[in-house]
């Protein structure tokens, strides 16, 4: 496994940095959500705070997505890792990026207000795993037995 790619510590450092970024993105949220009162108009300061936070979320989302794409691309383009490892890393980075985009662009989070959407997405993920996983297992098994 000692290919021309970077050493293990360097790789680990890279994953650590990525994880940190993601953690930052997920932790950006209101310090204390204002009590939901249907009639009260939020104050100017609250609107301004919301505004800043939203802008920051988009910015972080874009930055993270960019970084993750570049990383995956570089892994393959400059052959930083052996194909099997690189493949796993590329898929992993892709998955992380999907999560980042869901959080920052599609505004799905684990707070109460997004529960309906979140549950829907989690259920869909279950079905996707069943369908895609099942299809791959069955058809690769068939291929192995028939080829």
């Amino acid at each position: 496994m000692s290919g021309p790619g970077p050493s293990l510590p360097r790789r680990l450092a890279r994953y650590g940095a990525a994880a940190l970024w993601v953690a930052t993105a997920f932790s950006v949220r209101p310090a204390a959500a204002p009590p939901a009162r249907r009639t009260a108009r939020p104050s100017k300061a609250e609107i301004a705070a919301d505004r800043r936070r939203d802008l920051l979320t988009y910015g972080i989302g874009y930055g993270l997505a960019l970084a993750l794409t570049l990383l995956a691309f570089a892994l393959v383009y400059w052959r930083w890792a052996e194909p099997p490892v690189a493949l796993a890393l590329v898929f992993g980075l892709g998955l992380v990026q999907v999560l980042v985009q869901f959080r920052c662009f599609l505004h799905i989070d684990f707070k109460g207000q997004a529960r309906d959407d979140l549950l829907l997405i989690l259920f869909s993920t279950l079905i996707v795993l069943l369908m895609v996983g099942g299809t791959l297992v069955v058809l690769f098994n068939l291929r192995a037995r028939m080829m």
Binding site: V76, P83, A86, V90, F91, G94, Q97, V98, Q101, F102
Partner: peptide
């Protein structure tokens, strides 16, 4: 865009790796 990320990873990056 999310779908494209998957295409970029699964189709293109995997493809040129082979």
């Amino acid at each position: 865009d999310v779908i494209w990320i998957a295409i970029f990873s699964v189709v293109y990056l995997q493809g040129v790796m082979r």
